[in-house]
């Protein structure tokens, strides 16, 4: 039987839209201030920072709220390494939402990074060096 054949069983009629009923713990709005502070620091000193969302007592609803509030910006990158990782810039440039999935597709860790470009996206000089060697090989093949 296909799963989508399951009708939605309403176990609880929704009562009201109070924050608590939606599972909000009230911890998410505080994070916005912290992010603002970190963004200021990035501008002042160029220092990048990160917040481990798993290390905070956030409910899934909190995370949804935060994700919705921060929104999606113009840049999104996907990294394929032992499972997919997504690095999405929020509507606040410099604030990135980073989600690492494991090989099974489950979320392994989740961060907010405040940086111009996430470290993970940058190519490492060693890798660039190897790339250069590869390029030179390609060029030498041309002749």
């Amino acid at each position: 039987m296909p799963l989508d054949a399951i009708p939605i069983v309403v176990i609880n009629p929704s009562e009201n839209s109070a924050a608590a009923d939606r599972g909000l713990s009230g911890n998410a709005p505080v994070l916005l201030r912290e992010i603002a502070q970190l963004t200021g620091r990035l501008l002042d000193s160029g220092e990048a920072s990160a917040i481990d969302l798993r290390a905070l007592p956030l409910t899934p609803a909190d995370l949804d709220w935060l994700r919705e509030t921060l929104g999606r910006g113009q840049v999104a990158a996907t990294l394929e390494a032992e499972g997919e990782s997504t690095l999405t810039e929020t509507v606040c440039p410099g604030v990135w939402w980073v989600t690492h999935h494991n090989e099974n597709g489950a979320v392994a860790s989740e961060f907010i990074e405040v940086t111009f470009v996430p470290e993970l996206l940058k190519a490492h000089p060693d890798d660039v060096r190897i790339g250069l060697e590869h390029l030179e090989l390609l060029i030498s093949d041309l002749s």
């Binding site: 069983v9 609880n12 009629p13 939606r22 599972g23 909000l24 899934p60 609803a61």
Partner: peptide, 19 residues
């Protein structure tokens, strides 16, 4: 088994036995 709208926990349903 809930709809997302009625879902009290937010992004996921209450227990592991969800959709």
């Amino acid at each position: 088994v809930h709809t997302a709208a009625e879902n009290k926990v937010g992004g996921q349903s209450g227990t592991a036995v969800n959709m």
